[in-house]
Every structure is written in structure tokens, then in C-alpha cells.
Amino acid sequence: MNTEDFWKGLWRENPIFVQVLGMCPALAVSNTARNALAMGLATLFVLVASNAAVALLRNFVPKQVRIATYILVIATFVTIVDYTIQAISLELHRALGAFISLIVVNCLILGRAEAFASRNSIGRSVLDGAGMGLGFTLALLSLGAVREILGSGSLFGVALFHADFQPWVIMLLPSGGFFTLAAWLMLFGRWRAPDA
């Protein structure tokens, strides 16, 4: 059992900050830390489950129909997640809206199925899915936290500033999402870049 399969998703191959995959849900629901966390966990579950299923099926699926099979597997798990969230918290389900269903077309999940799970054992695939999912969740949280702190002056709904804090409404709007992700990417780009 190689723990590297797990750790690489957290930092070295982080889905959002390094591979820049699966950004649609990352930007759309990261306006509060709570939504971001829920979305991250939902994606984590689908990623682990679909990686396991794809790894199980990898020797039985003909090459020509593999993508269609993967998408069907993913869509099944996403439907499960969709109905589960609806049962646990209707309010959260409304806040996330159609973006739960849109996990199906998150390129990250199909990408891991095709690039990793289709040619590795179940154990390694589950580890890979867990690492990537956790990396995705962390990245989403770091986006959601920044946007919520600046945009509403709170974190997980807890107010952080005095009542006279003037929230930066722009951070809650779509352009705020683009700017926050760009800022993180620049920061990490500077960090990784060899000293010039």
C-alpha cells in the first residue's frame, strides 16, 4: 500500500490549484464556507465511490464504451448524493441548487476514472480518490473562507468583525470568485517558482 497515492492529491497534484480541474462547481458554490465544505464532501464521496467501482470493472469494460460506462457509474452515485442531501438538509439542497447534479460533469471525477482507476487496483484507486477529493475539499474551503470573510464579514455564519464592518459585496458576486481563485493561483505560482 503506497501512501503517496493519497498525499499527492493534497498538494503536489492538487486538483484545483495545480491541475485546474473541476472549476465550475468550485467557483459557483464557494460564496460561503459552509456551501464550499458541503460541495467538497459530496464530490469526495462521488470520487471515492466511482474510483472504486471503475477499478472493480476495469477488466470487464470494452475499451470503446469505457467513457460511457464511467459516466453512467458517476451519474448513479451523484443521484444518490443528490437525494441524500435533500433528505438531510433541504435548505442546503436549495443553496447548492443544480450544482449537485452537475458533479456528474466535473472533469476531475471523469479524469481520475480514466487516468488512474481504470489501470490500478481498488485499494490504490480508493486512496487516490480520497486524496484528490480531500485536496478538492480543502481548495474549495480556502476559496469559500476568503469569499465569506471578505464578502459577509463572517466564517461559517459566525460574525468576525464589528457591526460597522463594510462587507465587500463584490466577493459574493461571480467576479469575486474569479478574483479569489486567481489570487490563490498567483500566490502558489510565486511559491513554486524557482527564485528568479
Binding site: 485546474v20 467576479s175 469575486g176 470568485g177 474569479f178 478574483f179 481563485l181 486567481a182 493561483l185 498567483m186 505560482g189 510565486r190 517558482a193 528568479a196
Partner: peptide
């Protein structure tokens, strides 16, 4: 250099 690529595209999109 650190800004080139995706980060710059995202600022533009914003």
C-alpha cells in the same frame, strides 16, 4: 511569470 497562464485568464474573466 507567476501570473502568466491560468491566473491571468481568471482575472480577465472576473
Amino acid at each position: 511569470d507567476p501570473v502568466r497562464g491560468t491566473a491571468l485568464a481568471l482575472v480577465l474573466a472576473g
